[in-house]
């Protein structure tokens, strides 16, 4: 029983050393280019597809796990959608209709409106109607803009997606550029990470307002700073522990360059953790999107969500909730988990 425990770590060390020797051979043979090419390939290590040999049985288990995860993600989306419908349905003032106050409507029309309102008061009817609409691609009509929700979203999704993409990429670049040199330092210098600690303590809305007041930067800068502040500490600690691992110490002692160690060992080995962190960044950025877009008046999904929330616009709110749940579900689906790695 006890002998099985060290076997795993010995195997890991053996694997790491064999990788080290292989990479040394690559470097000796002028295989620097191959070294760089191996980075995306080594992302395959995410599911450890190279080792051990990938059998049919393991593939079947992987497929079953993936199907279960997909099912779970879909169920969670449904849960989020139904939850939103219920929340909005029971919100005070949901059934108030401004037309009832309008004297121009005849009594017959008003009676018709009241009957329609009474029909909608049944939760099952409201939920079934909304779900049926979604399944047929009909997202409903916005109560405040009197426009199909699809039209509203079609114009705004690219704006928000671009903002999210730029913010996440810039934030990660900033975090990596800061974490890489700091993680290689021998002594622990708190001052290097101090700007990120301060950034973590500033609410997004305040950061955005500060940018507007100082006339410096825009929504991308705010999102980038937020992502960088959130990811910096994780990245720093991941890289620090990676630099101190025994096989890298050996590599450094043998005179391997830092760049080779980074591209051939550290980044490929950290790929699963980095991937998981990246998906978390998406969730963080989605949350921050609303204050950022509201403060900078960016015509994106976040600004639409805020407007829908303030005006209790059920169709818009439910659709945005579904979109957000899809994005988070997809991020959770992509993010590797220990159980998934074991299966693979």
């Amino acid at each position: 029983m006890n002998s099985s425990l060290p076997t795993f770590s010995m195997r890991r060390t053996w694997l790491d050393l064999s990788e080290l020797q292989r990479s040394e051979r690559q470097m000796e043979g002028g295989g620097r280019l191959r070294g760089f090419i191996s980075i995306p390939i080594s992302l395959g290590l995410l599911f450890r597809l190279r080792e051990p040999p990938f059998t049919g049985r393991a593939m079947m288990r992987l497929l079953i796990t993936m199907a279960a995860r997909t099912m779970r993600a879909l169920l969670l989306m449904l849960f989020a959608a139904v939850g939103t419908i219920l929340l909005v349905r029971f919100a005070p003032g949901f059934f108030s209709d401004a037309r009832e106050m309008d004297a121009r409507y005849a009594q017959v029309a008003q009676a018709e409106m009241q009957m329609e309102s009474a029909r909608q008061q049944r939760v099952s009817v409201t939920a079934a109607k909304a779900l049926e609409g979604w399944l047929h691609g009909d997202l409903g009509t916005s109560r405040q803009y009197q426009t199909p929700v699809v039209d509203l979203l079609t114009a705004r999704i690219p704006v928000s997606a671009l903002l999210l993409g730029k913010g996440i990429v810039c934030g990660w670049l900033l975090a990596i550029c800061a974490a890489l040199p700091i993680s290689g330092l021998r002594g622990k210098n708190i001052l290097w990470g101090a700007p990120f600690t301060v950034l973590l303590a500033i609410p997004v809305a305040a950061m955005a307002t500060a940018c507007i007041v100082s006339d410096a930067g825009g929504p991308v800068l705010v999102l980038s700073l937020l992502i960088a502040a959130r990811e910096f500490k994780f990245l720093q600690s991941l890289l620090e522990s990676a630099w101190r691992s025994p096989h890298l110490l050996l590599g450094r002692a043998q005179g391997m360059r830092a760049r080779a160690l980074l591209t051939l060992h550290i980044l490929p080995n950290l790929a699963p953790q980095l991937c998981a962190l990246a998906t978390l960044s998406l969730v963080t950025a989605l949350g921050a999107l609303i204050p950022v877009e509201v403060v900078f008046t960016v015509p994106g999904v976040g600004e639409l969500a805020w407007s829908a929330v303030m005006n209790r616009d059920l169709p818009v709110l439910a659709t945005i909730s579904l979109l957000m749940a899809c994005a988070v579900g997809l991020a959770g689906w992509i993010a590797p988990r220990p159980a998934m790695l074991e299966v693979a």
Binding site: L76, A80, A91, P92, L286, A288, P291, S321, M324, G329
Partner: peptide, 24 residues
């Protein structure tokens, strides 16, 4: 855990904002 994951399936600030706005 599925129930708690349901709460986590929406970004925190969006969820807070939505629920808070639906209260008086």
């Amino acid at each position: 855990m599925f129930f708690s994951d349901g709460f986590l399936s929406l970004p925190w600030l969006f969820f807070l904002m939505m629920v808070r706005s639906l209260l008086p």
